[in-house]
């Protein structure tokens, strides 16, 4: 048996110092400074920062109907996109993991992964073409055009691989014998799905939903490309900083997705989903 107790603390410390300076000091420091700025305001006439502690920004986020609507809309879109992706991912992942022969399975994994490597911007742009006035969907007479519906379709399209991959990995771990046992005991396919498949892939679905949820809440580029006049949380943050030059308000509003994500992570931690990431 080895008498060594692993690398020395000095080595660990030396190795950790540079990454910790970068992420622990610089990045966390930047996040902290942003959080601090959320409690400041800007001077209405000069646009200068007024570094006096106030809760005004958070108060207007809660009081003004327009921000309440945008927050609710963003959360609603995030939930809808997550549900659409889960509904699409389940049959595809099930087919990949449990029905397809090994050769086809390998091919399907590549087919699902390929678009993941295609640029985010290019995919959003592709849907701008699909939804455009002279595009193929309009030609077929079924285009919803640029707006909320087009946005949900595009976001669901963008994040779908992030849902399929964890669900596929989760289903691969589910023994086929369980499904056969359920069928042997006389359960119809739907019952097997509800009582055997769904409970065992639930952590994987939750893991996928962390991506779909977080990515939807922070998005503002796809919104500008296919969302038409739709305003989402990300747009308000970006415009308050870029157009209105109001860093404190942008900072305050950007605290909302962080709190939602932390709350969500806290709730789903019990499902064991975090080990599936």
């Amino acid at each position: 048996m080895s008498t060594r107790s692993g690398p020395s603390p000095a080595r660990t410390g030396l190795l950790l110092l540079p990454p910790l300076l970068w992420l622990g000091v610089a990045y966390l420091g930047a996040l902290g400074a942003l959080f601090l700025a959320a409690f400041w305001t800007t001077n209405e006439f000069t646009g200068d920062l007024v570094k006096v502690f106030t809760l005004d920004n958070f108060r207007s986020l809660l009081d003004q109907p327009v921000y309440r609507t945008i927050t609710a809309r963003t959360l609603g879109v995030a939930v809808l996109v997550t549900l659409v992706d889960a509904a699409l991912a389940l049959p595809v992942a099930f087919f990949m993991a449990k029905v397809a022969r090994p050769g086809l399975q390998r091919l399907l994994v590549i087919a699902v992964l390929m678009p993941l490597w295609a640029s985010y911007l290019v995919k959003a742009y592709a849907w701008r073409g699909m939804l455009s006035k002279s595009g193929p969907l309009e030609w077929l007479g079924i285009s919803p055009g640029y707006g909320l519906t087009g946005l949900v379709i595009t976001l669901a399209y963008l994040w779908l691989p992030y849902m399929i991959l964890p669900v596929y990995a989760g289903l691969q771990k589910l023994p086929g014998s369980l499904l056969e046992a359920s069928a042997d005991l006389g359960a119809p396919a739907l019952t097997t799905f509800r009582r055997v498949v769904l409970p065992s892939v639930f952590p994987a679905l939750v893991a996928g939903s962390i991506f779909t949820f977080s990515l939807t809440m922070g998005d503002y580029i796809a919104v500008k490309i296919v969302g038409g006049p739709t305003q989402m949380l990300g747009n308000v943050v970006a415009d308050n900083y870029g157009v209105a030059n109001n860093l404190p308000f942008a900072a305050a509003y950007s605290v909302v997705p962080v709190l939602v994500m932390l709350g969500y992570l806290g709730v789903v931690r019990r499902t064991g989903a975090l080990e599936n990431l």
């Binding site: 992420l23 990045y27 930047a30 996040l31 400074a33 942003l34 700025a37 503002y220 997705p257 962080v258």
Partner: peptide, 21 residues
């Protein structure tokens, strides 16, 4: 967790924080 954080938080938060810093 610290190493995963820049990718787990929405990009707009990371972007705004770094811009400000």
């Amino acid at each position: 967790l610290l190493i995963i954080l820049p990718i787990a938080l929405p990009g707009i938060v990371t972007g705004l924080a770094l811009n400000n810093a």
